[in-house]
């Protein structure tokens, strides 16, 4: 296991290259180019603001903020899992011709989504400052921790999913549907207090719930999140990495034959 980690460390340049290539290539040949990384979330926020304050009125103050601070981390998770499914299949040329530890592929995909999230957060922080909601320094300190936990969670899932998709191509589409349902099982669009008691158990099982709640606590309520809740997410994250790594290692042996 440690040998694998060391090997991956040796390939960090490749991970960096792939992430760079993905970010650069995403908006290449478009006029606005890299600016789209910022314009995208900004536009999202503008649309939410207009819709939720003028048309679909929600009882929550500054609903657009309430929504965005969880929506962006959610997009990181959902794109990691559903997009990550194709991480290996989409690079099959590389996989079939060159040796490198295959784990590099899901790692670089998730990292690239992570970087996107970070850049989108820049916009969010600007908007929070401008809107007048303000920040709580103590709470902000916890932000990297939450981000770290979410990263681990996404990576674990991405590993399992990317390895399995090689054998079952359907998985990509199944996950798309799953994510669509999953967002409603996470308190993204509503606060956790809205959930009736009999369904709370389901919500508690969802590892993204404490993560979503934590983001909201830090950025909207400006409170230090309940780290005990986060422990559950952390455990699931570690477990998912462990399972993910093991599953990936086992399945990757026959990648070339299946691709």
């Amino acid at each position: 296991m440690w040998k694998k980690c060391r090997e991956l460390l040796g390939y960090r340049e490749m991970i960096k290259s792939l992430v760079r290539r993905d970010l650069r290539g995403r908006y290449k040949s478009s006029v606005l180019g890299f600016l789209w990384t910022f314009i995208n979330p900004l536009c999202q926020i503008i649309v939410y603001t207009v819709v939720f304050s003028r048309i679909f009125r929600m009882d929550i103050e500054r609903y657009y903020l309430f929504l965005t601070v969880v929506m962006i981390p959610w997009v990181f998770f959902s794109s990691s899992v559903s997009g990550g499914a194709m991480a290996v299949v989409s690079q099959q040329d590389l996989v079939k011709k060159i040796y490198f530890p295959r784990e590099v592929l899901p790692i670089s995909f998730v990292t690239s989504c992570f970087v996107n999230m970070l850049l989108s957060f820049v916009v969010v922080l600007v908007v929070i400052a401008v809107s007048g909601n303000g920040f709580a320094a103590r709470a902000l300190v916890c932000l990297p921790v939450v981000m770290g936990i979410e990263y681990v969670l996404c990576l674990g899932f991405a590993m399992v999913v990317s390895a399995c998709t090689v054998y079952f191509r359907d998985l990509e589409h199944i996950l798309g549907v799953l994510m669509m349902a999953w967002i409603y099982m996470t308190p993204v669009m509503y606060d956790i207090s809205f959930v009736p008691d009999d369904l709370l158990a389901v919500f508690r099982m969802n590892p993204m719930t404490p993560v979503a709640v934590a983001y909201r606590e830090i950025l909207y309520y400006k409170r230090v999140p309940d780290l005990g809740n986060l422990l559950w997410a952390f455990l699931v994250g570690i477990l998912s990495i462990a399972v993910g790594a093991a599953v990936f290692a086992r399945l990757q042996k026959n990648f070339v034959e299946e691709l």
């Binding site: 960090r12 490749m14 792939l18 290539r21 290539g25």
Partner: peptide, 23 residues
């Protein structure tokens, strides 16, 4: 392997070489 058509030759050298395991 790993050449990206839109990137320059020089950039692709970095990418390609990193795929070979060089830092």
């Amino acid at each position: 392997a790993g050449f990206h058509p839109d990137m320059s030759g020089r950039e692709n050298i970095y990418t390609n070489a990193s795929i070979f395991g060089l830092n």
